[in-house]
């Protein structure tokens, strides 16, 4: 599918979803009941209209023989890197507060570096992970006076109880 067609469809779908969600917003009890909906409805309408314009102009371009420039060559392993990074980020988000900054960041950075900088460079990955984690910890705590979360056994227990893991951490 042509790039602009995807953009047009995305815009129409987003506008329609956003518009539907706008109509479900509760009426305001003060002033005009529709006041909280007017601006979002305008945004939704523009998204749909612009999406349609993108689809029509792209169709016209395609009919006129316009050939889309091929996307730049991708590294074959880039999908693995993108998905891997996003998964690690999500796990880091869940682990950051219960496991604390140091444990979660050491694991996150090492795994991310292993993914991006390749496992064979494990020595440099370990060094970079340690320097990054402790340098930033020192900077945040001592220079910026920002407290970072520390390991909290109770929260970890709660997390494992919540996820149904039967691990005995006590």
């Amino acid at each position: 599918m042509r790039r602009d067609t995807v953009v047009g469809l995305f815009s129409v779908a987003l506008g329609a979803l956003y518009g539907t969600a706008t109509l479900r917003i509760k009426d305001a009890t003060i002033g005009s009941p529709w006041a909280p909906k007017v601006f979002p409805l305008g945004v939704a309408a523009f998204l749909v209209v612009l999406g349609i314009v993108a689809l029509i102009t792209d169709r016209a371009k395609a009919r006129g023989g316009h050939v889309e420039r091929a996307p730049a060559a991708k590294d074959p392993g880039c999908a693995k890197l993108i998905i891997g990074t996003l998964v690690l980020c999500a796990v880091y988000g869940y682990a950051f507060e219960p496991f604390g900054y140091i444990v979660s960041t050491l694991c996150f950075m090492f795994l991310l570096l292993t993914l991006v900088n390749e496992p064979k460079r494990w020595k440099s990955n370990i060094i970079i992970t340690l320097v990054f984690t402790f340098f930033l910890w020192g900077s945040f705590v001592y220079v910026f006076d920002i407290a970072l979360p520390s390991f909290d056994m109770d929260t970890v227990k709660e997390l494992f109880a919540f996820t149904g893991g039967g691990v005995n951490l006590g």
Binding site: S11, L14, G15, Y18, T22, I25, K26, D27, A28, T29, I30, G31, A35, P36, F39, P40, V43, A44, F46, L47, L50
Partner: peptide, 19 residues
Amino acid sequence: FIGLALTTVGIDLQSGVQR
């Protein structure tokens, strides 16, 4: 417009309605 849509998330400051 995607940016404007993102700014409408949250409690509306004028009416107190959640969006």
